[in-house]
Design a protein around this nucleic acid. Structure first.
Lengths: 327, 327
DNA sequence: TTGTAAGCGTTATCAC
DNA sequence: GTGATAACGCTTACAA
């Protein structure tokens, strides 16, 4: 697109490119007259600075790369929304890449970001420590979200999955449930692993039935439907995320079971929909997590690098009608 | 970040930067020996090309800017997912910007993209023709999604809202409903306007009750709850999008009304959740819409500009249990 | 086949 | 206060 460059503006304003740059960037040592001439010329030409050239010169892009796993649904949109708000507030742009496949594709996506962004936020619940250090340059400015706890090379913002799971189990027992179905997430996902481990250690074999899904609504539905058809008896379902809990609710409703009287249901994440479906769940404050990651990253960028820090976010149990009839 | 540059590679491989460039980009006229030396040096140094510099030189970024309104929830994530898949497939990156506020902020976001992207996809159901031509440089490569039909300056991919609404009304009448509540969307939103107009023209005053919301679940809930409390009688609710339909369902359930026996409910969009909630709705194929926009844009980029085209996507009625008890 | 050097659109360091 | 000019990291004629 043959857009006007700084040289065109300089020519039109009859000054040097240096003056145009100074004037447009509001620097000192520019006479009012020059400033006015430049402003007029820029306006007339519809001049818009070329961000690419600018960042090459400044060694600074004002953009942040975001690498996400292939997440569908509300979790994804919420976390991006949180990041977007914070990025916007602090004058950054977001460069998005989803890594659908394995760590090879993750690496490719990462490389494509070189020279386009100042830093990265990487959410990779399916990559282990080795894969991360293979893909992420050691010294690179990056914040991880939900990476394994043993990753120390970069800042890492994590959710306290154990605490969340314990809170749910405690709640279910408090309302008198003694036979709980746990619907786990995909085994290669770190959060799923941690939640499953927490569930295993906070419940005893005789009070639990294990099932598994892949974090999708349909898998939650299938898991619970399967148990019902198999004639299993239970009075609670705890799904490793809200989407599967929604599926579980459908399966229960289809089977004519009342909730929470016959079966109480709890999820994990507190996606926006959970409130509307009156689902008891663990509030992760997803958008806030994204905003926090971005905020930490930008602060790091602007104040010079600090030591990598690990942040553990304690989630909060939100009790709704899917486990307790009132409120 | 003191990363290695092409010059470092050249020095290490004992060749010129030109040879490095040629070798790494797989061009002809490079001896096997040089190619090997360069590859080794690049590997040793962990060299990753600087995309910013590359695109300045090539006048080509391999990135596409995406401007979206501040949409929450599944519609947003679906459309981005569709774009991401297509972008990925064709080797492009996505630069994301939400325009929360008005057309001034939209313009700022657009300008920030200059020199970072090769083209834009702009979804601006709240901007009219004037605002669009003010913000978008005439000649700029861009595809619009759901811009007003009278915009001819750029390609425009639209949903046939009229057809969708007519299909729903026809269906509701076919199943014997004669008093329909229509919950409209925000008045500044183009889709909301078109859907409302279509509803108005396809129904008569005695068979409709008009209510309004803002496309959020809560607003759909509030609208229907309000009507029930006001003692209104109706046997169908048609919400201008699925989120509000979900809210409507909650309100009905809270009031002890059966669905679809007492009140049939229909939405618009067919977000992924609609299937799981068994909501009759108008299938927009959101992800496909995003993919289509991107595909058109990239083809345009790679084959040289073509005339702007308007594409009208005919949505499809999907009948589920919220209006028909079986299937 | 290889290297030299100009250029992409900026900013920043100098002189003046 | 202003203007040349050398970077920034890359690609690509054009020479050799």
């Amino acid at each position: 697109m043959g857009e006007a460059t700084i040289r065109d503006v300089a020519r039109k304003a009859q000054v040097s490119v240096a003056s145009v740059s100074r004037a447009l960037n509001g620097l000192d040592h520019v006479s009012e007259q020059t400033r006015a001439k430049v402003a007029a010329a820029a306006r007339d030409l519809g001049y818009v600075p070329h961000a690419g050239a600018r960042s090459l010169s400044l060694a600074r892009t004002n953009a942040i790369g975001v690498l996400l796993p292939d997440v569908h649904g509300e979790f994804f949109s919420e976390i991006v929304r949180g990041m977007d708000v914070e990025a916007n507030r602090r004058g950054y742009l977001l460069l998005l890449a989803n890594m659908h496949a394995g760590s090879a594709q993750a690496k490719a996506a990462l490389q494509a970001m070189r020279g386009r962004v100042d830093a990265l936020v990487v959410m990779a619940p399916h990559l282990d420590r080795a894969a991360i250090s293979r893909a992420l340059p050691q010294a690179s400015r990056a914040v991880l979200i939900n990476a394994p706890a043993n990753v120390r090379s970069h800042s890492n913002i994590r959710i306290d999955n154990h605490a969340g799971v314990r809170a749910v189990i405690k709640h279910l027992k408090a309302i008198g449930r003694s036979r709980m179905v746990y619907v786990g997430g995909p085994s290669h996902n770190l959060d799923a692993q941690e939640r499953a481990a927490a569930f295993a250690s906070a419940s005893s074999a005789d009070e639990r039935i294990l099932a598994s899904g892949d974090f999708s609504v349909e898998s939650g539905n299938a898991a619970v439907r399967g148990l019902i058809e198999a004639g299993e008896r239970f009075d609670a379902v705890f799904a490793a995320n809200d989407m599967m809990a929604i599926g579980a609710i459908q399966a229960l409703r289809a089977a004519g079971l009342r909730m929470p009287e016959d079966v109480a249901v709890a999820g994990f994440d507190d996606v926006p929909l959970a409130e509307h479906l009156e689902l008891t769940t663990v509030r992760v404050r997803i958008a806030e997590l994204g905003a926090r990651a971005l905020s930490r990253l930008i602060t790091m960028l602007e104040n010079g690098a600090a030591e990598p820090v690990s942040e553990l976010h304690s989630p909060e149990l939100v009790i709704r009608r899917s486990t307790v009839p009132n409120a």
